[in-house]
Each structure stands twice: as structure tokens, then as C-alpha cells.
């Protein structure tokens, strides 16, 4: 995983740095002091190396804490794992925010559209029935009027 790789790469860096700064190299730079006090030089070199390693290791831990790197690396590993089957290059922000944000809206627009289509259909059905009732009502009223006209006629 990324966390593991990160630690390994930093350790390798450290090892190689220490290997580069070998005791030979150190002694050859401080040649006269080394000739005068070889043990002391050794001791100072050992201390230098362990101090450098300790500080760098400590710093790396601090940076990992600070940036919450461990958690981020693990969650990125998961995301990458999930995308394993995806061959194509994935979508990336277009640089036109309203376009990208628009797509984020799409599912809600579609839901809203479906809702409107549903209530429109319901309302149309409701109105169809109401229209039928109105037509029936108008027929009934015409009928009653005719009945009344007939009675009236008869009495007339």
C-alpha cells in the first residue's frame, strides 16, 4: 500500500544518504583531527549518523501526523482498488465549474422531473374524471331542464 511504500522509500533515502556519508568520507574530510583522535572521530561520526537518522525519522512521523498521511494513503489505496476494473481514463474537472456542478445536480433534476411527471399524470387523470363528471352533470341539467320544460308545456 501507499503508506508502506512511503515508509520504505523514505527509509531507502535515509540508508543511501548514510551510506554516502560513510565514515571513510567523514574521516577523510576531517583528516588531521582523525589522525589526532581516531576513536573520538569515530564516536562523533556515530553520534552524527544516529542523530541525523533519529531526527529525520521523527520528522517523518510528524509530517505523517500533520498531514494525516496514513489515513489518506489507506483510503486512496481503497479508492484505487475499487477503480481497478476501470480501464478508461476517469473524468476530471473540466475547469468550467458550472458545468461540473451542473452534473452534480443532474440526479436531483431527474428526480424532480420524475416527480413533476408523476403529479402531472395524476392531475390529468383527476381532471379527466372531473371533466367526465362535468359533462355528465351538464347532460343531467339539460335533461332536468327538458323535463321541466315538458311539465311547463303540459301545464301551459
Amino acid at each position: 500500500g501507499r503508506a508502506q511504500l512511503f515508509d520504505t522509500v523514505v527509509d531507502t533515502f535515509l540508508q543511501k544518504l548514510v551510506a554516502a556519508g560513510s565514515y571513510q568520507r567523514f574521516a577523510s574530510c576531517y583528516r588531521r583531527f582523525y589522525k589526532l583522535q581516531p576513536e573520538l572521530t569515530r564516536g562523533i561520526y556515530e553520534q552524527f549518523i544516529s542523530q541525523l537518522q533519529a531526527s529525520i525519522k521523527e520528522e517523518i512521523q510528524e509530517i505523517k501526523q500533520e498531514g494525516n498521511l496514513e489515513m489518506l494513503f489507506n483510503s486512496l489505496d481503497k479508492i484505487v482498488e475499487e477503480a481497478k476494473t476501470q480501464e478508461e481514463p476517469a473524468w476530471r474537472p473540466s475547469g468550467v465549474p458550472e458545468e461540473d456542478a451542473g452534473s452534480a445536480l443532474a440526479p436531483y433534476l431527474l428526480k424532480h422531473r420524475a416527480y413533476l411527471q408523476r403529479i402531472l399524470r395524476e392531475k390529468q387523470e383527476e381532471n379527466r374524471q372531473a371533466a367526465e363528471a362535468v359533462l355528465a352533470g351538464r347532460g343531467r341539467i339539460t335533461e332536468l331542464q327538458q323535463l321541466i320544460a315538458a311539465h311547463q308545456q303540459a301545464w301551459q
Binding site: I79, Q86, E88, A90, W91, S103, A104, A106, P107
Partner: peptide, 16 residues
Amino acid sequence: KNVLLPEDKVQEQYPY
């Protein structure tokens, strides 16, 4: 390149 962040999943489902 082939990875999409979770918050952008919607871009894949609704390429509008």
C-alpha cells in the same frame, strides 16, 4: 488516471 474520487462519482453516472 483511471481513478475517480468518490465526490466526483456523480460525474460518471450523470455525464450531462
